[in-house]
Design a protein around this nucleic acid. Sequence first.
DNA 1: AAGAATGGATAGTGGCACTTCCCGCTATCT
DNA 2: AGATAGCGGGAAGTGCCACTATCCATTCTT
Lengths: 209, 209
Amino acid sequence: MRIGELSRETGVAVPTIKYYVREGLLPAGRLTSPNQAVYEESHARRLRLIRGLMEVGGLSVAAVRDVLAAVDSPEPVHKVLGAAQHAVTPPVGGDPEGLEGARHAVAELVRRRGWRVDLGNPSVEAMAVTLATFRDIGHGAFEEVLDDYAEACERIAHADLEFVGRTTEVERLVESVVVGTVLGDAVLAAMRRLAHVDASARRFGVGPR
Amino acid sequence: MRIGELSRETGVAVPTIKYYVREGLLPAGRLTSPNQAVYEESHARRLRLIRGLMEVGGLSVAAVRDVLAAVDSPEPVHKVLGAAQHAVTPPVGGDPEGLEGARHAVAELVRRRGWRVDLGNPSVEAMAVTLATFRDIGHGAFEEVLDDYAEACERIAHADLEFVGRTTEVERLVESVVVGTVLGDAVLAAMRRLAHVDASARRFGVGPR
DNA sequence: AAGAATGGATAGTGGCACTTCCCGCTATCT
DNA sequence: AGATAGCGGGAAGTGCCACTATCCATTCTT
């Protein structure tokens, strides 16, 4: 496959493909002469993965690079999970007012649920920052739903692990972890909105049906 | 309060505050003379809300404007929910290969769960695009977990409605809907990651404890 | 009285994800 | 064999976004 075909195949413009190669997201094609190269089906697959992570997952080029590095690394799955999460968790913004208290609330939650989670985990901090923001803007009562969220998340995590375990091709198991992590967020967010609409319709008796 | 104090109070630079006023995110201060204005505590609260939506919720200035318009509108709560969701749902990117089939999968899910959701809802389309992307990159098996996700989301939506119902100040009820929708996503994503780490630790027997 | 701060407006900045342009070469059509 | 299209590689440019800097005349603070 030449670059033009790759472009047609995936819907990604040729200069964009070149850009991704320069940025280290996509391996270069195999040169057959000083200015001709061939691309394999694996390039097309990788390219679709890149676009999915960016367009649906909302990742930046830099984040995609980190995530793909995790996918390609020979680490065991649970280490890759950590690396992928680290790459995906956006660098936390400024630190809000009640951050210390929010950190404590997260630690308490982790303890209550008996989660085997290191409190240095970036998601712990991300959650603390979010809870602190809830407090700052006067909606600290949100913390009362945390346990409901936690139970829901336990169920989701269990299902996610099942899904990953079902992946037949072992060499793409790590990829399915990463994809499930990133794109799963998008599905979850969309589905939560649908559930909101439904719950709201039931309570206020409006909408279809 | 003058603009300098407002800036110190909220940690937002003075030119940035002026920018938000120009962009219609923040009402202007009340002029006491041609070049002096006073700001109330409400401005500080609104400013913190803006920063929270942007930094934690990841919304653009334009999205924040739309969300705040919903907050300020005199519509009933369930209408505001729809408007807020519309404002928050990022315009869907390109349409992937198997979009039609994915749309069908979403419609089936909605039918199965008996959700009172209009299939024209932007979140339906967002979810279809995401599922189509899963298929495109060879992880269509993800759809097998949709029902687990759905049950988890029903629980979450129920808890969210409870939370909103507990809001005592009626005039900020709509705000709590919007905040819960936007920042709740961030909490949910972070918590799902923590649950992943825990589930992975249990299955592979690593990590703390 | 003097220095700092303000409202309002215009222009400029830095980061990001491309996109354009160019060169000399190669593949393909006729 | 010649014409035409496509290619690899690199440098520069584009458009958008969220600010940020500068300016001026006025007003507040000390």
